[in-house]
Amino acid sequence: MTKLGHGSITIVVIVLLMVYFLLPLWWVVVASTKVYANAFTGISLWFQNPTLYNYVYAFTSSNLLLWLYNSIIESGAAGVIGAFFAAMMGYTLGKFSFRGRNALTLLVAVALMIPSTAIAYPTFVLEAQLGIANTYWAMVLPSAVSAFGAYFMTIYAEETIPKEVLDAARVDGASELRVFRSIAIPYFKPALVTVFIIIFAATWNNYLLALFVLRSGSLFMIPQGLESVLINGSSFPQFQYAIQMAGSVVTVLLMAGLFLSLEKYIEAGLGLGAVKG
């Protein structure tokens, strides 16, 4: 193949990928600058009489900011708690041998394959009995249990933390807690970021659990908020449209920012989970 041919294939494929993966995002950006009455007429992929009406309306007349805040607090708390608990679990399973270790590893592997939606309803019923349904904790605590996180951290601990370094610290008289905090945690840093991202995304995608356990609008995360508008606002499609378009664009920008800033951890992290162990 000539150099020119090779180059043009690259360009064609890149353009195709861009069209498919970025088109909906581009469309929503364009659509968010149109008022509802003009949204589905004329050229749909370019700006026409752009206006910020949707954004102004969404930020002043809906709970968009509150939903964003809730999403970040609830998913963020689940991510931080879940990543640390998974690291402690993985550290112990990967670096110590004790009776029951194999059974626990198997338990984690099986739990990994039980879909979270299958236990959303049971979790709700239990939380209602415990009296924590309809609080932040109702969403945060179940989401923080990540079997994938524990599985991933076990492999990560086995692969990356040298036993000699841990033993050297012990011989120097460091307590177990100190060994974990000062020696293991620094090794875990990239894995903590990977697991945090995975739990974060899983939490704000666990829409079924949110529907069950978060009843009051003041606790809604962004997906539930945007969809509550869809259900309630059908007689005023222009407002529903405004909130959903502006809300989608703001959320996508936020996530894109988060992903770009953590991008270097993602490939290494996900790839490791796939094979080692």
């Binding site: 990928l17 861009m18 993966f21 970025l22 909906p24 995002l25 469309w27 929503v28 995304a201 704000w204 995608n205 829409y207 962004i222 997906p223 539930q224 945007l226 969809e227 869809l230 959903q244 809300g247 989608s248 959320t251 996508v252 996530m255 894109a256 988060l258 992903f259 770009l260 991008e263 993602i266 490939e267």
Partner: peptide, 18 residues
């Protein structure tokens, strides 16, 4: 890589709405 991975970060409800 970033381009194809970006949709994963869009909450599925919002992706579906779009």
């Amino acid at each position: 890589k970033v381009m194809v991975f970006l949709p994963y970060g869009v909450p599925t409800v919002i992706g579906t709405l779009m």
